[in-house]
Amino acid sequence: MTPENFLEMKATIDRIYQIVTDNSFSLRELLALADKIQRPSAENLPRHIRGFAGRIENKITNMRTAKNLGYELGLSSSKVETLARDSDDDAKALFWDELCERHQLPGRPLTTGLLISACQGAGIKSVQDDLMPPSHVEAIEKSYSRLQQDIRVKDVLPYLRDRGMMLWEDIDYITEPKTNREQFKCLVDILPLFGKNAFDNFVDALKKSGHEHLAAILMNELENLCEDEYDVRDLATEDNGDDNYSISLYILCCLIYYFMPILFPL
């Protein structure tokens, strides 16, 4: 191997390492980062949300991106524009103000799943490649009320720990709130951080902890979402087929129009 090849290989490895590092989130890292964020508008956000947003902040490079994220979070255009004026054209300040505003809206508060989906909708790429897939997040969101009503969080957590998905410090963070309702909210909110297999591990933990009916609800919801996705793809395929047929017919008509006088002169 020549020195040039060695240096090129080393540079490639360094780039791969940097990508992995940039896209690696653990709950411990997010909580540590949250404690370093010194923005007044972020103080009311849960620590894991604050830390996760801290990693996204560097990707908010202009006002257009910040505004699009606000729209994707469900804020009205008038509210986004008002926040934008108050931010003095500071995209990062607008980003934090939007998160705070969204968190204060009635109904479901801001979650990591919602923030991830909003980032994808706003065109903010590579938030994290190893997060829970959007369809899994949506299945949990759609089942949220029933899960919250029946789940016993402390019965589920040991199985997630046994699967190697969570550390004891993660479990301590989830069980820090005193009520089962708040513990469930925290559990669901951080689940997307635990990767592509988090949903399957969660379903398995539900089955083993006596929550088989909740596991069935989640799986049914996921199947319905997948069926809807396939229906949309099939419809798009049919539309493309119709478009291709129309284009072919148009080309054929043009050929006939131009070559008819040559083939059959008057």
Rank of each mutant, 00 (worst) to 15 (best):
residue 258 Y to M: 10
residue 154 K to N: 10
residue 183 Q to Y: 06
residue 99 L to I: 03
residue 33 L to G: 00
residue 176 E to F: 04
residue 138 E to R: 02
residue 60 I to S: 08
residue 103 H to W: 06
residue 131 L to R: 04
residue 63 M to N: 08
residue 6 F to S: 12
residue 81 E to C: 05
residue 16 I to C: 05
residue 77 S to Q: 11
residue 67 K to P: 10
residue 204 D to H: 07
residue 82 T to N: 15
residue 1 M to A: 07
residue 157 L to V: 01
residue 252 L to D: 15
residue 205 A to D: 04
residue 159 Y to I: 09
residue 95 F to N: 06
residue 20 V to F: 03
residue 165 M to G: 01
residue 6 F to I: 14
residue 242 D to C: 09
residue 105 L to C: 07
residue 105 L to V: 04
residue 85 R to M: 10
residue 152 R to E: 15
residue 208 K to G: 01
residue 40 P to D: 13
residue 265 P to F: 11
residue 204 D to E: 13
residue 124 I to D: 01
residue 194 F to A: 06
residue 220 N to S: 15
residue 8 E to R: 12
residue 25 F to I: 04
residue 230 Y to R: 15
residue 216 A to P: 00
residue 162 D to A: 09
residue 178 K to A: 13
residue 87 S to G: 08
residue 242 D to H: 13
residue 103 H to M: 11
residue 237 T to E: 14
residue 9 M to N: 11
residue 192 P to D: 07
residue 85 R to W: 10
residue 81 E to N: 15
residue 211 H to T: 06
residue 105 L to T: 05
residue 166 M to S: 01
residue 71 Y to N: 07
residue 163 R to D: 14
residue 219 M to I: 10
residue 194 F to I: 07
residue 131 L to C: 12
residue 34 A to C: 02
residue 59 K to H: 10
residue 15 R to L: 12
residue 247 I to Y: 06
residue 37 I to G: 04
residue 157 L to Y: 02
residue 259 F to K: 08
residue 17 Y to K: 14
residue 229 E to P: 00
residue 1 M to D: 09
